[in-house]
Amino acid sequence: MEVLMSVVIGIIFSVSIYLFLSKSIIRVILGSLLISHGVHLLLITMSGLQRGGPPLLGLEAEAYTDPLPQALVLTAIVISFGVTAFLLVMAYRTFKEHKTDNLEELRGSADE
């Protein structure tokens, strides 16, 4: 299972890097969104995918999985939610001001 997850994470990372390197702002943001997913999956996978019960007090199980990575992932998800929301608003404002979402055209000249 860990191997499969690693492969999936690798694919997600490569796709997100590809998106990061593209010219459209919105694709770059999608790249950042995707890389955060990859990172969260990595966080879950790296700490071992034990097959115990979910760490909930309401459930009776013989063994529970490590709840810490899940708490970490939840925190990381909240943070990436905030960052992505901010990025989207910012991209929208940039588009309104510059009338383009092409990063090539947003390079700016050296002397301004």
Binding site: I25, S32, V39, V83, T94, G108, E112
Partner: peptide
């Protein structure tokens, strides 16, 4: 100017933060 240049600042930091989580993992 701010909108254009800050986008790069934000993106490099988002990427670095992703690596941060990887390192922590």
């Amino acid at each position: 100017y701010q909108l254009r240049e800050s986008f790069k600042y934000v993106i490099i930091n988002v990427f670095a933060s992703a690596l941060f989580v990887v390192a922590v993992a």
